[in-house]
Amino acid sequence: MQTEMSKSGSNPFNAISPTANTIINIGFMLYTIACLLPILLIVMVSLSNEQDVLTKGYSFIPNQIDFTAYKFLFTDWQQILRSYGVTIFVTIAGTILSLIIMALYAYPISRTDFPHRKFFTFFIFFTMLFNGGLVPWYLVYVNMLNLRDNIWALVLPLLVSAFFVLVIRTFFQSTIPVAILEAAKIDGASEMLIFFRIVTPLSLPVLATVALFSTVNYWNDWFLSLVFITDDKTLSIQYLMYKMLLNIQFLASNSNAASAIAAAGGQVSFPNETVRMAMAIMGIGPIVFAYPFFQKYFVKGLTVGAVKG
């Protein structure tokens, strides 16, 4: 199937009529615009003047371009920088660890000669069928592992996904010829060596896909912060955004912005609406820039991995 991808795709023997083609084109054009508009709106609001927003509402065409919101936002740059730091650390550490742990679990259960293969497959598969629910899960992390307000609480819970382990296993089973493994074993290679030198290089497509999914999951996570984090020192960028949507003064009350307002004795007011949207841009930005790279590999990875899984 992979080789098929490199072909131009549609069958060359008959093409759709020009009218149909035009209609499809226009349809997609409209849909694509509809997809981009919400993001454009946020960008425009973040660049608007607060007064204009208050009187006219959010609009695609600001009366004037105004960077006040970003100025206010950057008075509290330490918090934003720190949150980026948290998110980046969690994403990198999480993705690497999760990939290693999942691949190491998937390999033995892909080996038909491993006698406990069935048991361990079921051991992980069962977690897809049944779970203990939020409360006991939360208590394990907080009471047994003591991970409250700990950055590892943002890493650990997303480490292993049963589904991905099974996808990796299937990939190992279907693409790695048993003959190679046998040959290596006869040459006296240890299982670890076989795994790292032979299996992993051959499985790069599926591992890359899983890594990309992991990256997105970690980057976009806010739920773990919601339940585990109280401390401002460990706020991820997504959670910071969530807090700001609910409570824009979270920034105003903590930051130097507040003292600027206080110094002006309330004559200057905090640009709530535009700062909120500027914050959203801070959260969306990196994903959009990384997107072209991401998208390419995702499409590649998905088409080899997930369908088979």
């Binding site: 742990i101 977690t127 409360v135 006991p136 394990v140």
Partner: peptide, 29 residues
């Protein structure tokens, strides 16, 4: 196959804490 058990150990440990102990925790209900 001891090396296989070693390889799976981190995953098994994770599943025990993240999934199986919480399953026992359903007694709370």
């Amino acid at each position: 196959y001891w090396i296989f058990y070693v390889m799976m150990a981190p995953g098994v440990l994770f599943l025990i804490f993240n999934n199986y102990i919480p399953m026992l925790g359903t007694v709370i209900a």
